[in-house]
């Protein structure tokens, strides 16, 4: 009874980590709250729809495409919005209003363009180019479920968990093994001092903003498989979930998000198993508990003084 929700929690939790890591990167570097995060995630799902329905390709190929596309979108958007925002007296508060407005605009435009109905992609199509790899993982032919410790799980969960681990790993490499990453951490730690030492803060922030949006778009590619379907209104719920995961792990620490996602995933699956009617309350209960017991999040302290 416990094994299934625990494994499911880890798999889904890794995906939840991917859901939140972009939001946290943006907050960590710029101290702005991107309330349109979920909408970029939704747009990532629409990239997957385009790749599959227009080009007839494996939706997995939408991952690099969505990432590159939204890194560019992020850098352009940063140039348009964020420097003005940073000049204001209270950029954190104003960012909430600005990105809430952006979220509404994105949702409205997508609704006008594509309608309000649910959209998805057949699960067996995800990773159709990787059937051989999936078989090696124990999957049955034609995108069947994957057996883990004697339990069956959707192949899409395993694929998204693997991609999430890779994405989180790459974020780690970016932050701790590249020059741009070192500069990014410097800005995360002390923005003013970084600026004073000659670091091009705007360039670092633009890159982080672009990567944040790119990661959201990657998570979006998997959304139709993880949540059944996606609508233009999907963004608001996704933002709330991502926000909870980020706070749980630690605001400002992208790697804490990985832990936050897994903890959230396990809690969610356990609540669904034993108190299914109350599963909706979980994000808010966790949020209250974290803010009461450990306001800095599970990995909070290390980040703030990194």
């Amino acid at each position: 009874m416990l094994a299934y929700p625990l494994i499911a929690g880890v798999l889904f939790g890794l995906y939840f980590s991917l859901l939140g890591i972009g939001l946290n990167l943006v907050f960590g570097v710029m101290r702005i709250v991107n309330l349109a995060h979920g909408d970029f995630l939704m747009l990532g799902a629409f990239v997957a729809f385009g790749v599959f329905y227009l080009l007839g390709l494996d939706p997995l190929l939408a991952v690099p495409l969505a990432f590159v596309l939204f890194v560019i979108v992020g850098i352009v958007l940063y140039g348009l919005l964020v420097p003005r925002l940073q000049q204001s007296r209270d950029p954190e508060m104003l960012s909430i209003i600005l990105f809430f407005g952006l979220s509404q605009v994105i949702e409205a435009l997508v609704t006008i363009a594509f309608g309000t109905s649910e959209r998805s992609i057949p699960s067996r199509e995800l990773g159709s180019l990787m059937t051989a790899a999936a078989k090696a993982l124990g999957a049955k032919p034609e995108g069947g479920p994957v057996d883990i410790l004697g339990q069956s799980f959707p192949a899409a969960w395993v694929i998204s968990a693997v991609v999430s681990v890779i994405a989180i790993g790459l974020v780690y490499v970016y932050l701790y093994r590249t020059r741009l990453g070192t500069l990014t951490r410097a800005v995360m730690s002390r923005r003013d001092e970084a600026f004073a030492t000659g670091i091009n803060v705007d360039r670092v922030c633009a890159a982080a903003f672009g990567i944040g949006l790119g990661l959201a778009a990657i998570a979006g590619v998997f959304a139709p498989f993880m949540f059944g379907s996606v609508t233009p209104a999907f963004g608001a719920d996704a933002t709330v979930t991502a926000f909870v995961i980020v706070v749980l792990g630690s605001l400002g620490n992208p790697l804490g998000t990985a832990l936050g996602g897994v903890v959230y995933g396990i809690c969610y699956m356990l609540v669904q198993t034993f108190l299914s009617s109350w599963a909706d309350l979980l994000p808010y209960v966790l949020l209250i508990l974290v803010l009461l017991l450990r306001p800095s999040g599970l990995l909070g302290r290390k980040v703030r003084v990194a």
Binding site: Q151, M269, D280
Partner: peptide, 20 residues
């Protein structure tokens, strides 16, 4: 005989419980 929130988008764990 179980209720789930209307916002539920994932039933995998619940399906496992029903199967049991």
């Amino acid at each position: 005989d179980q209720g789930v929130p209307t916002e539920t988008t994932n039933y995998t764990v619940i399906l496992n419980n029903i199967r049991a």
